[in-house]
């Protein structure tokens, strides 16, 4: 297939417009979901208040129970933009190829793309990441892909604690608020 310069520009323009539109629709859907969740939380709060009024002694017990509960360590992971800043790392792909792997922030709040060193995408929209001793496991919507790491850069282990499964979601804090 031969494409002229103007064809290449046209192709770029169509892809650009499509990506922009799908992204804005995704953001819109995300906001709608968020509003729906908030609505649910508000309704739950109203129901809880009514219950609290009816049984006052129970609320005291609840406070004591909360004191005993150990608060888990906060997740310091901050989403795709943090991953995109991590340096490229040499890995062995599940197929056995030696490749250089890096992340790219695609503008979504909850996914990153995984690129090869030549810029081509090998995994798009990775939503969860887990480091183990000798590999990095990347989860997209379909399955888990494990890449063997030769030598893990220190900056990686500062951001991703080995053994912990991280969800790529920078909007998590906002949702919780």
């Amino acid at each position: 297939m031969k494409l002229s310069k103007s064809d290449a520009l046209l192709l770029h323009a169509v892809l650009f417009k499509h990506l922009t539109n799908t992204h804005s629709q995704r953001v819109e859907t995300h906001h709608e979901d968020l509003l729906y969740k908030l609505e649910g939380y508000l309704l739950d709060d109203v129901e809880d208040e009514e219950e609290d009024v009816e049984v006052e002694d129970d609320s005291v017990e609840d406070v004591e129970a909360e004191d005993e509960y150990e608060v888990p360590e906060p997740d310091e992971f901050k989403g795709p933009s943090v991953l995109a800043k991590l340096p490229a790392v040499s890995v062995t792909s599940p197929a056995g190829d030696k490749v250089t792997l890096e992340f790219e922030d695609v503008g979504d709040a909850d996914t990153v793309d995984v690129l090869l060193d030549d810029g081509s995408v090998i995994l798009d929209r990775v939503c969860c990441i887990k480091l183990t001793d000798k590999s990095v496991e990347l989860f997209d919507s379909e399955e888990c892909h494990a890449f063997q790491i030769k030598k893990l850069p220190k900056t990686w282990s500062k951001v991703l604690q080995p053994g912990v499964l991280y969800g790529v979601d920078s909007s998590l804090d906002e949702e919780e608020e």
Binding site: L11, H12, L15, L19, D113, G119, V121, D124
Partner: peptide
């Protein structure tokens, strides 16, 4: 995936 790679290559080039 290929479409995205094409877009990235063109975007970077332009």
């Amino acid at each position: 995936r290929t479409a995205r790679t094409l877009y990235r290559a063109l975007q970077k080039h332009y």
